[in-house]
Computed example of a mutant assay.
Amino acid sequence: METRELAVVASSFVGFQLLFSVASPRLSSTITPGYRQLPPPKLTEWNSRLVSTVHALVVGLFCLYILWFDDKVNANPVWGDPSLVKLNVAITCGYLLYDLVLLACNWSTMGDSFFVCHHLAALYAYGYVLTRGVLPYFANFRLISELSTPFVNQRWFFDALKYPRSHRMVVINGVVMAVVFFLVRIAVMPSYWASVFATFGTPDFERLGLGAQVAWITSCIALDILNTVWMYKIARGCYKVLTRSGGRKVTDGAEASSSSDRKHINNHTD
C-alpha cells in the first residue's frame, strides 16, 4: 500500500471519529430538539448513523463520478488506472476501521458479530485494491450501493424520535428507501455480472491469481445473496406500511408508536 493511501485511511479514521464525537452531537442537538431526550445508547447509535450517512454520501457520489468520467478504469475494469478508486476505497477502509473500534468500545449496546464479519471481509477484499491496484471498476461499482444507506439511517432516526410508521415523512422515506435500494443493489446485478463474466478466461483475469479471484467472486456472491434477502424484507415492510396507510389518514404529528421501540439490529430489515 502506498503512503498516500495509508494517509487517506488514517485521515478518514480520525475525521470520522471527530464527526462522531464532536460534530454530530452539536449539529444534531441544534437541528433536532428530540436528540437530547434520547437515552445514552441511542445517542451513541444516532451519532454512529450520522457518520454512516456522511460516509455513504461522500463515497457513493464519488463512485458515480468515477463511473461516469474515469475512462481509464472503464476501459480496463481489471487493471485500469486505480488512482481515484484507491482514494475512495481508502476512505471506506478508514470508515470501516473507525466503525470496528466503535463497536468494540460499545459492544454491550451495539455489538453485532454480523457487522464485524462484514467489515473484516470488506477490509480483506479492499486490501487487494489498495495493495495491488486490481479490479478498480468492480470495487467502485460495489461501493455505489452505499447510496441506499442514508435512507436506511433516516428510517432509524424517525424511529428513535418515536415517529409512527404512518407518519407522512416516514412513509415517503420508506418508499424512497425501497426504490433506491432496488436501483443500486438489485437492478445493477445483471450489468455487474455481465462485466464479471466478460473477464473470465482473459489474460487480465489470469494475472489476478487464485487468491484475488476467489476473494472477488465469493464476496460478490455473498453480498448479492444478502442484498436480495434485504430487498425482500424491505419490500415486504414497505408494502405493509403502504397498505396500513391506505386504510387510514397519514398523520403529520410525531406521536409514539409501539413499533418504534423495536431494536433494529440489521440496518436493512424491517
Rank of each mutant, 00 (worst) to 15 (best):
V180M: 07
R165T: 11
L87G: 10
Y192N: 04
L161N: 12
T149L: 10
A121L: 15
K162Q: 14
A178G: 04
D81A: 07
S108T: 14
W193R: 03
S145V: 03
G94F: 12
S108L: 10
V89Y: 01
W107H: 11
L96T: 06
F62D: 01
W107M: 05
V101T: 13
V179H: 05
L97I: 15
G133L: 00
L143P: 01
S148E: 04
V171W: 00
H118D: 06
G94R: 03
L130W: 06
Y137K: 07
Q154A: 12
M110W: 11
W156R: 09
G60R: 01
R142Y: 13
P136V: 11
V129A: 15
N88L: 04
F114W: 05
N106I: 07
N88W: 05
L143F: 06
A178E: 03
W107Q: 10
C63E: 00
K72S: 09
C117S: 15
E146K: 08
L135N: 03
S191M: 11
F138K: 00
W193D: 02
P77E: 02
I91L: 15
F141N: 01
A122K: 09
D70G: 08
S113E: 08
V73P: 01
G80E: 07
H119F: 11
R155I: 03
Y163E: 14
D99N: 13
S83R: 13
A121C: 13
F182R: 05
V175Y: 07
I91N: 08
A178N: 07
D70N: 06
Y126C: 03
V175E: 04
A104N: 12
F115T: 10
F157N: 10
M189Y: 14
N76D: 15
L87F: 13
